[in-house]
């Protein structure tokens, strides 16, 4: 469902040019749970942002569900992001002055659902993440693990087929991290494709497949292994 071919992304400031991604090629299939690891600064977040169309690549080709998204305008991209993609961040990124209900409401508003449909979906996902009783609470009144569950609920409310998670457990202790991971696995079993960046090797191993990014590229070793597997197959 996601196919990147020779993606390049460079950031230019006054003095330096950083190549965050170089000749980055990757394919993710429908229903997969892929974990992404790699050293800090290697380009993991940049990859997720390009996958979620928050950033445009400097070069290369990106197909989402077979469609080349580089020709789309901002409106079409936003629409696609709203319908197909859910984002989860390390810092949760809940909107502080909106309660849980209104936070989850945000993507549904842009989707244009009527209030009845929005309420139905919000109640459903709050139930899924076990926070129904807290709908009127503000994010600051919750623990980190609970906040991340709300963020997941918000990402799920639009029923996206593709979930992008950037170190979702990075700010959580190991118990809460395990709970969040279990939630993600559960979601994946119900059919949502997940790409998750993580530093935790244990969590990374629990995914169907692990990709290591080094210096803006999928690591050579993995590419060699993949090539060898392809050869034997």
């Amino acid at each position: 469902m996601l196919k990147m071919h020779n993606i390049r992304k460079s950031y230019r400031t006054d003095t330096i040019e950083t190549h965050a991604l170089r000749d980055f090629s990757l394919e993710v299939n429908e229903g997969e749970f892929v974990s992404v690891t790699g050293p800090s600064g290697s380009g993991k977040t940049t990859f997720l942002n390009i996958a979620g169309m928050l950033e445009t690549p400097t070069g290369g080709e990106y197909l989402l569900d077979g469609d080349n998204v580089s020709h789309l305008n901002d409106r079409q991209r936003s629409r696609l992001r709203n319908e197909k993609i859910g984002f989860i961040f390390q810092g949760f990124n809940l909107i502080p002055d909106l309660n849980l209900f209104d936070n989850i409401d945000v993507p549904l508003r842009y989707r244009g659902f009527n209030s009845k449909e929005r309420r139905r979906r919000i109640e459903k996902v709050l139930e899924q993440v076990g926070l129904s009783a807290r709908a009127k609470h503000l994010p600051s009144q919750l623990s980190g693990g609970q906040q991340q569950r709300v963020a997941i609920a918000r990402a799920l409310a639009g029923e996206p087929r593709f979930l992008l998670a950037d170190e979702p457990t990075g700010n959580l202790d190991s118990l809460m991290a395990r709970q969040v991971m279990e939630l993600l696995e559960f979601i994946n079993e119900w059919g949502t494709t997940i790409v998750m960046v993580t530093h935790d090797p244990d969590l990374a191993r629990r995914a169907h497949r692990n990709i290591q990014i080094v210096d803006g590229q999928v690591s050579d070793l993995q590419r060699a292994v993949a090539a060898a597997e392809a050869a034997t197959a």
Binding site: L54, S78, R79, N93, I95, V106, Y110, G158
Partner: peptide, 11 residues
Amino acid sequence: VRRALGASRQA
């Protein structure tokens, strides 16, 4: 955050 959740620039 709103942009990530699907708001266009115009919105």
